[in-house]
Structure formats: C-alpha cells, structure tokens
Simulated scan of single mutants.
Amino acid sequence: MTHDLNSALVSLDLILDEENARLGMPGFDLVPRELVAAKMRVVGVIEAAQVRLVAARSAGAAAPDAEGCAATAAMLERTMQKLATNAALLERRIALCDDLMGAITDEAKRLSGGRSMVYRATGALSHAEQPTPIAINNSL
C-alpha cells in the first residue's frame, strides 16, 4: 500500500514541477486545464491510499518497515516544499490579476467620465463615482 502512496507522490511532484515552471515564467502563461485535472486526480489517489493505510493499520495489519516509512516521509517533505512554492506562485499570480483588474477599472472610470463633483452649501466638495461596467471575456 505504501507503494501506491509513493508512486502517487512521485506523480504529484512531476505535476507540481511543471505547474511551478509555468507559473514562474514571465508573462501570462495559462496552466492547461488537463494539468489541473491531473493534479486533482493524483491528490484523490493520495487521499485514497492514505485512507487504505489507516484502515489496514486499524485492522491490525503488519506495520510497514522502517525503511519504507522513511522513504515516504522524505517524499512527503519534498512534496510539501513544492506545494509551498506552488501556493506562493499562485498567490503572486492572483495578486497580479487583482492589481491588473484595479488598473483597468480605474482607467475605465477615468475614460468614461463616471466621476462627478458637487459643491455643497457649506463649501465642501463632494466626489461621487458612478459604477463603470466592465466585461471580461474569459472564454478560451
């Protein structure tokens, strides 16, 4: 059973390597949907293998050898490092997209003249911004 877990961890490592390489490249490179789907499938296989291992140990099956446990622990450590890198790259990509959408919104407001100023009786100047419709076509 640890063999299934180890082979799934190797598969996840390979997928994370490719995804991290794509996310780390300059410019905007889409991560293929197939890669994301494969990552989700492999994570499901890892979860299923972990459940089977816990069930086997609860049923009184023989504990795996120390060498196998050490190899699995080393693989898990490497995978966790790659997942941390992946999370940081995804956070950076999301932040860049948020900044880009903010800049597009600000420019659309500036160009549409959706801002107005009103003088009040007290002499104060009041600013009002009208919502600017923005449509994003994200079809591939």
Rank of each mutant, 00 (worst) to 15 (best):
E47Y: 03
R57S: 05
A55P: 03
T72C: 08
P131T: 01
A56E: 03
I94Y: 05
A108D: 14
T79V: 13
T105R: 15
Q50N: 15
K82Q: 15
V51W: 02
G113V: 10
K39V: 00
S112T: 13
A70C: 07
R120V: 03
A56Q: 03
V51Y: 03
M80L: 15
K39P: 00
V54S: 10
S116T: 12
M80K: 14
P64I: 04
N86L: 03
A61E: 04
R115Y: 08
E77T: 11
D65K: 02
G44R: 08
A48N: 10
E77Y: 04
M80Y: 04
G114I: 09
S116K: 11
A84P: 06
D98E: 12
M40C: 01
S116N: 06
S126F: 10
A73E: 11
G102L: 12
A56C: 05
R92L: 10
S112M: 11
A66K: 11
Y119R: 12
D106N: 13
A63Q: 00
V51L: 15
M75A: 14
S116Y: 03
T85D: 11
V54P: 00
E67Q: 06
L125C: 05
G102V: 02
T85F: 06
R57C: 02
Q130P: 01
R115G: 11
T79Q: 09
A124D: 15
M40R: 14
A95N: 05
H127M: 14
R120E: 14
A61D: 03
